[in-house]
């Protein structure tokens, strides 16, 4: 039981860092530009498809990862310049409609380009295999590497946001856009940087997860909603909140699916516990979100309106 717990906890942390990569960009875009972007989930999918393509072309995961990054920057910049830039001053309703349209467009473009059958990305040789954790327990090296990479990005983002000039502008922009603009900062450039950064982080999450999941057209959907839950729990505009929210959501989701039925079995008969566990487990994160919002409507680290 202890082994299962540690294993699932690690799986939860691994999902958590991926969710953080996606939610970090989302929360910055919401917080700084006050723009709702439904197309953020498809960027995660695009990242996975990009690395699948480049890895297949070059025959190497590492080259694939390296080539994926500039391609992700290009995707982010194109989206920002062609569509997003025109939405900043619009109502939330306009933003919902236009980015909902973008989701449809990008999903279909991916399907036209890569087909509907799932792709797979080979595990890099260096990171294949497992390491012993405790006793007989083994854990795949690649998943540990994903956790490490995610944490490294989190630390990097923390340093950038809290200790650099651009980070200072980001924080200022999230607090008071108009003032930042009035002080002579090129707000358009700042917005373009923020959006592209968010896009690259989402693509990176998709690329990192590609060797352990099959790359298919539906992969952005469930992740988008989970990332929304993370942003709402953490508080809009807060990178710290996104990090904590991502870990909470991912661990609750992972552990709840495994241990929920086990816990229920101690109070209900096994058949009913199994049935109820299956129904309740996927709803757990939303119930958690409801509880947190009930206590703190602006999220854990959000500024109340």
């Amino acid at each position: 039981m202890m082994n299962l717990f540690v294993l699932q906890l690690l799986n939860g942390v691994q999902l958590g860092v991926l969710l953080f990569l996606i939610a970090a960009g989302l929360t910055l875009v919401f917080g700084i530009m006050d723009v709702i972007n439904l197309a953020h989930g498809v960027l995660y999918m695009v990242g996975a498809y990009l690395i699948a393509t480049f890895a297949a072309l070059t025959g190497s995961f590492w080259w694939g990862l390296l080539l994926m990054l500039p391609a992700a920057v290009a995707v982010g910049l194109i989206l920002e310049v062609v569509v997003m830039r025109r939405l900043y001053a619009r109502s939330h309703l306009d933003q919902v409609l236009a980015t909902f349209g973008l989701v449809m467009i990008i999903n279909e473009l991916v399907e036209i380009t890569w087909g509907t059958s799932p792709l797979s990305v080979p595990m890099p040789e260096l990171l294949s295999g497992s390491v012993p954790l405790m006793g007989p327990l083994q854990y795949p090296v690649y998943r540990i590497a994903v956790i490490a990479a995610g944490l490294a990005v989190a630390v990097g983002l923390y340093v950038v946001v809290n200790h650099t000039r651009i980070g200072m502008l980001l924080r200022a922009g999230a607090t008071n856009r108009t003032m930042v603009s009035a002080l002579g900062v090129d707000i358009n450039k700042l917005f373009a940087i923020v959006f592209t950064l968010g896009a690259v982080l989402a693509c990176l999450a998709g690329a990192l997860v590609a060797p352990i999941l099959s790359v298919d057209t539906g992969m952005g959907e469930s992740v988008l909603i989970l990332a929304f839950v993370v942003v709402v729990i953490g508080g809009i505009g807060s990178v710290k909140g996104a990090f904590l929210g991502a870990l909470i959501v991912a661990i609750v989701d992972t552990l709840g699916g495994v241990f929920g039925p086990i816990l229920l079995r101690s109070v209900l008969d096994p058949a009913a516990a199994g049935q109820m566990g299956r129904v309740l487990a996927p709803m757990l994160v939303y119930i958690l979100m409801a509880l947190i919002l009930f206590a703190k409507p602006a999220g854990l680290f959000g500024r109340s309106a």
């Binding site: 569509v83 409609l97 236009a98 909902f100 349209g101 973008l102 989701v103 449809m104 467009i105 999903n107 279909e108 473009l109 036209i112």
Partner: peptide, 9 residues
């Protein structure tokens, strides 16, 4: 959906 999405945008 490609055309519908384009229409929306």
């Amino acid at each position: 959906p490609l055309l519908f999405g384009l229409f929306l945008v």
